[in-house]
């Protein structure tokens, strides 16, 4: 299928970049010129060929570099991957979901062979060839969730369901938008979303929870979230805030185009069959402002969204202090022309 993996870094010299093809398939999250929180969930059904929705789990040119970055984060701080003792079965469910999806969707990259509970997994890009016994942790080098999420892009959390609530009780979180798994693990749905402004008052979380409690196996859903990140840093963790926080004070009119990134999370939700838990993959896509404005519709629209965003949201997302500089930069790419509905780029 001709996927070439970039050699790039998400730290230090920050050599991360998007190819022109990666820019065109970027999941731009705004389908209109303004933004407010909503439940905005839709069925996670296969999308058009080439888009990030084509497959259940998208594998793109950043795969190997993202997995290298994850390994570095875990070596620094093993608490980024945790699973409370009762969540092991959900971890196996997740392993099965990812392995089956990838082997089906990318047969030239991944293979899964099953003989009863004896499984054989091949991950060609990462040069992994592993035989193991499904549901037997002793046959894998890590627990099932950690094993498979060291081979899958994006963060993952697992939610147990009980007492008409969801409980975040396992996760692999190394590409997060400033929240701590170590602190939040064990919380209920409204608790771990507590710091989000405005959305509680709008009833967003009540509706979302009610919906998710009824989520069915085989009928996953998806939604977007987004924020801004200075430099292509996947690991914007609260743990390391003193390390990356100062970069927020370094944005100037001269560097905003090359250092400010739109950070989009494609979040999907899957009911897991054996554990009745819910898997929540949070896939992070980064794009530099000067890459993004090569799509004229997105440059126009991002300017309007950022300019008009309520101050609470810009503060919560951490870019209020740089908003004026960002808006000035983006304004150069907004000629005032109307934008077409939906997020897709206009045909060239």
């Amino acid at each position: 299928m001709g996927l070439t993996f970039n050699t790039e870094t998400f730290r230090g010299d920050f050599t991360f970049h998007n190819s022109p093809a990666a820019i065109r398939r970027f999941p731009f999250p705004f389908d209109r010129d303004d933004y407010m929180y909503s439940v905005n969930m839709e069925p996670h059904v296969p999308g058009p060929k080439g888009t990030v929705f084509e497959h259940n789990f998208d594998v793109d040119e950043h795969y190997l570099s993202e997995m290298r970055d994850r390994a570095l984060v875990l070596a620094e701080d093993p608490l980024r991957c945790q699973s409370l003792p009762h969540m092991t079965l959900a971890g196996w469910d997740l392993l099965e979901l990812i392995m089956e999806s990838k082997a089906r969707d990318y047969p030239d990259l991944f293979e899964l062979h099953k003989n009863g509970n004896r499984w054989h997994w091949i991950n060609r890009p990462m040069q992994i060839d592993q035989s193991f016994t499904f549901l037997d942790e002793t046959t894998l080098p890590y627990g099932p969730m950690e094993y498979i999420t060291r081979q899958a892009q994006g963060d993952f959390t697992l939610q147990d369901q009980r007492d008409d609530n969801l409980w975040i009780e396992a996760g692999m979180v190394t590409t997060q938008a400033d929240w701590s798994l170590d602190f939040d693990i064990g919380m209920g749905f409204h608790e771990w979303h507590a710091p989000v402004p405005k959305a509680h008052e709008l009833g967003v979380f009540d509706r979302a929870l009610k919906f998710l409690l009824k989520l069915q196996h085989g009928a996953p859903v998806r939604r977007f979230n987004w924020t801004m990140t200075v430099d292509p840093l996947l690991d914007t963790s609260p743990e390391n805030y003193p390390v990356w926080g100062p970069t927020r004070a370094m944005i100037t009119p001269g560097n905003v185009g090359s250092r400010m990134h739109l950070r989009v999370e494609l979040q999907t939700l899957h009911r897991l069959p054996r554990s009745n838990a819910i898997a929540f993959p949070i896939r992070c896509y980064l794009i530099r402002f000067d890459e993004l404005v090569t799509i004229p519709k997105w440059g126009r629209r991002l300017h309007r969204v950022i300019r008009d965003l309520p101050v609470e949201l810009a503060t919560y997302k951490g870019f209020e202090r740089n908003r004026a500089t960002m808006v000035d930069y983006l304004a150069r790419f907004d000629d005032g022309a109307p934008t077409s509905p939906g997020w897709m780029p206009d045909p060239e």
Partner: peptide, 26 residues
């Protein structure tokens, strides 16, 4: 580090969360 005190609370840790207040402007 100098930390500001959030109301965000973890039952598992039995603690509120403290976050560096001068991270962006040391």
């Amino acid at each position: 580090l100098t930390l500001f005190v959030r109301d965000h609370y973890s039952r598992r840790l039995a603690a509120f969360q403290g976050v560096n207040i001068d991270a962006e402007d040391p």
